[in-house]
Computed example of a mutant assay.
Amino acid sequence: MLFHNKYLRRVTDVGSMLQRVVMVAAESLKLLEQQLMDGDQIQDVRVVMRAPLDAYDVLIHLNPKQVPLLSQAVDPPAVTFSRGLMAGNVAPSGGALPVIDYNPVTLYLAELRDAFGELALFFCDPHGGTVIAVLWKPKAFLPVPFKTSHMSARRVEVTGEEANTIPNVEAILEDFRVLGKGLIKSVEARTEKWSF
């Protein structure tokens, strides 16, 4: 039964993601058609790679200096900065080795999905994206009967003789900040979008 429930949750998550992909593809097609039909408009196919962020519940803005693939972004920032270049004397050979295959954004995203995957979906452009978009799962905010084993990121609400748990959103947002300390610039809660 436990396997069946996990399987159904994953199917639901995949269904939500597929709906999102279809919606983004349809909007991208509209934008491209408008550009191609209007000769006066600047032809910029990168417009389909810019994800609209208005549909998400929380936006985690990353510090661009901590995004190793920033140069691969659709719209790289105009401000440039150097990574790992030392001014003055260069260390002799045999010095420190460069860091290879270390991506703090990917590691942070994996931590978020592991810790909060039951409550939310996390989206990020793996090629230089500076925003992690969070979408709350609708069923995550339904009250659940109190069990001590199910208290992760939840708070207890008592009504009469019944004790239920619901997600503690304020604590979750603070956890986003703590987990990403040094990597994130800000966490933007878009509460007007929340419907639970």
Rank of each mutant, 00 (worst) to 15 (best):
K193V: 04
P104I: 04
T165Q: 15
T148L: 13
G160E: 08
G117W: 12
Q34S: 13
I166D: 02
V14R: 06
L121T: 08
R113T: 06
Q34P: 00
R83T: 10
A153D: 10
K147G: 01
V74I: 15
Q43N: 02
E162A: 07
H4E: 14
I172R: 10
K6E: 13
M23H: 10
V90P: 00
E170K: 14
R190Y: 01
A153M: 11
Q66L: 02
V45K: 12
L2S: 09
L69Y: 05
K6H: 11
M86N: 10
P92M: 07
R83L: 07
P77V: 08
V58N: 06
V105Q: 03
D40M: 11
Y108F: 13
F3E: 12
R50T: 11
E118N: 12
V158N: 01
T130Y: 03
T148S: 14
N164T: 12
G129I: 05
M1N: 03
M17P: 00
T165L: 08
D101Y: 11
Y7R: 07
L2K: 09
T191L: 10
M1T: 03
K139E: 15
F146H: 14
V74R: 05
F196S: 11
D114F: 12
G95M: 03
D40K: 15
V158R: 10
D125H: 04
G39E: 14
T130M: 08
L112G: 03
V156K: 07
D54Q: 10
D125I: 01
Q41F: 06
G88A: 03
V47A: 15
V14C: 06
D125Q: 10
V74D: 09
D44A: 11
K65L: 03
V90N: 04
A133S: 15
Y7S: 06
L121Q: 15
Y102F: 12
D125K: 01
K147L: 11
T148Y: 08
A55M: 09
E174T: 07
R154D: 00
F176Q: 12
W194K: 05
L109A: 01
L85P: 00
V58R: 04
M23Q: 11
G84T: 02
M37T: 12
F81H: 14
V47N: 08
R113I: 00
H61I: 13
F116Q: 07
H150E: 15
I100T: 07
D114E: 13
R154I: 02
P76N: 08
S82K: 11
R46V: 01
L97R: 11
R46P: 01
Q43H: 05
P126A: 06
E33N: 12
Y7V: 07
P126R: 07
G84P: 01
A115Q: 15
I132W: 08
A163C: 06
S149T: 12
L8V: 04
E162G: 00
R9V: 01
A25C: 04
A91P: 02
W194T: 03
E33L: 13
F141M: 10
G39Y: 06
G128S: 10
E162P: 00
E192C: 02
G88M: 01
V187D: 03
Y56S: 12
L31G: 10
I184H: 08
D175R: 15
A115E: 14
P138A: 13
R9G: 01
S152M: 13
P167V: 10
W194S: 04
P126G: 05
A96W: 00
A73W: 05
V178Q: 13
K65P: 00
Q34A: 14
V178N: 09
A78P: 00
E170M: 09
E33I: 13
V67F: 05
